[in-house]
Amino acid sequence: MEPTTPTPQPRLKKVLCIEDEHFISELYTRALTRAGYEVDVQLDGQKGLAAAQTDVYDIILLDLMVPSITGIEILRTLRDPRETPKMHARIIITTNLEQRDDVRADIEHQADGYLVKAEITPHQLVEFLGRLES
């Protein structure tokens, strides 16, 4: 774990974090903001989906267990061109929920990344998002 080094401004910089665990979104926002990202947080699934559909974000961090609508539902809606005609954001699943392996494979297939939150630190999340640009 090295101290954060100043990173160049990321190209994909607008991040939507759909996450109902306030402390986690706080930690992620802190790390991402320091790395030059702009972060919006939505604690509710429906509101998160509505925000995601505005198509102003480059990256969407999507928790699978959020209030009012499941993350899988959000993912499906965002990936369905009839529901969300314009969608260019990268969708990264961030979850602590364990899926059945076949479900997980399916989710991974639809998303651009899949992270188990307990297995990464905020700094590692930043590194991961950095690799999306390449």
């Binding site: 774990m1 986690i24 992620y28 802190r30 602590n96 630190t121 905020p122 700094h123």
Partner: peptide, 20 residues
Amino acid sequence: VHELRTPLTLLRGYIEVFDE
């Protein structure tokens, strides 16, 4: 597992912040 992982995520996050 889900209930264990949430505090673990935070723990690891805060340890990193403190370390930084």
